[in-house]
């Protein structure tokens, strides 16, 4: 976390966000692990909800949403900013998605008795995870950058639509499990509810902080890629010793 304070990809704003994320994480740990009571049915395993659901929101909605919006704007304007934003969003989204799967399975063990249940959410999340791994593979394609960005943008848009298709098809396939966590007969204790929403806030801050840094890194990468060939040629030229007097050419 110390990179929030130093390093070329940080700025005043990102430092503030980084510190807020850090403080918010500390509060989440305190409220989630110490102050909030165990839940009636799920006992202590309910505490997983404070990180599981927020990371799902950060991944599937925020991060992949950024990728979708970035892709749409890139296709319309060819803006490098939004192209790199889309890339950064997908990468962070995949990371959070892996975290969602991990915490989901850990939560499944005490709740269902098994790590993996063909629960619509787990199933659709694992498919979404692979979908965006595919997107990242396309971003690595050995192609002209403009062509690659265009293809990635098309993929970024289709993938978001796929996210919805996968979600609904799996839900329809297994329409026998628990629905939304919040909204349906929520009988949560005040502090449990607070921890839950604090978790969402914390993960949103962490997401924003990561997005800024990942984006700046991508931006430097892009700049380096654009100038590296010219620099290499210039460096090579500079190596050349001055022609000897009388040398032909």
């Amino acid at each position: 976390m110390s990179t929030a304070l130093t390093g070329p990809s940080s700025s005043k704003a990102s430092r503030v966000i980084g510190l807020l994320a850090l403080a918010s994480t500390a509060i989440l740990l305190l409220v989630g692990l110490v102050l909030s009571p165990p839940e009636v049915d799920q006992a202590d395993s309910v505490r997983l909800m404070y990180i599981h659901v927020p990371s799902a929101i950060a991944s599937l909605y925020l991060a992949f949403g950024v990728t979708f919006i970035g892709s749409v704007i890139y296709l319309r304007t060819q803006s490098t900013f939004w192209d790199l934003m889309a890339h950064a969003g997908a990468e962070i989204g995949v990371m959070f998605c892996a975290f969602v799967l991990l915490t989901g399975m850990l939560w499944g063990r005490p709740t269902w008795g098994v790590y993996w249940q063909w629960d619509p959410r787990l199933t659709s999340t694992v498919i979404s995870f692979v979908l965006y791994l595919g997107y990242l593979a396309v971003r690595k394609m050995d192609l002209d950058p403009a062509v690659r960005s265009r293809r990635a943008a098309i993929l970024g848009i289709i993938s978001f639509a796929n996210l919805i298709i996968v979600r609904y098809s799996v839900q329809w396939w297994r329409s026998l499990h628990q629905g939304n966590t919040v909204g349906r007969d929520t009988q949560m204790d005040g502090l449990i509810l607070f921890s839950f929403f604090w978790g969402i806030l914390t993960f949103t801050l962490i997401f924003t902080w990561l997005l800024i840094h990942r984006f700046r890194l991508a931006w430097y990468e892009h700049q380096a890629g654009a100038t590296s060939l010219d620099d290499a040629i210039a460096a090579r030229r500079a190596e050349r010793t001055p022609p000897l007097a009388g040398e032909a050419l």
Binding site: I127, V130, V138, M141, R151, I158, V166, W173
Partner: peptide, 27 residues
């Protein structure tokens, strides 16, 4: 078409297509 003309095409297409077609398989 997205992966056309790439050396990694043969491995990239299955990675892209299979999760997309998961709902088709299901249905």
């Amino acid at each position: 078409a997205l992966a056309a003309g790439l050396r990694v095409r043969d491995t990239l297409v299955p990675l892209l297509v299979v999760p997309v077609l998961a709902p088709v398989l299901l249905g």
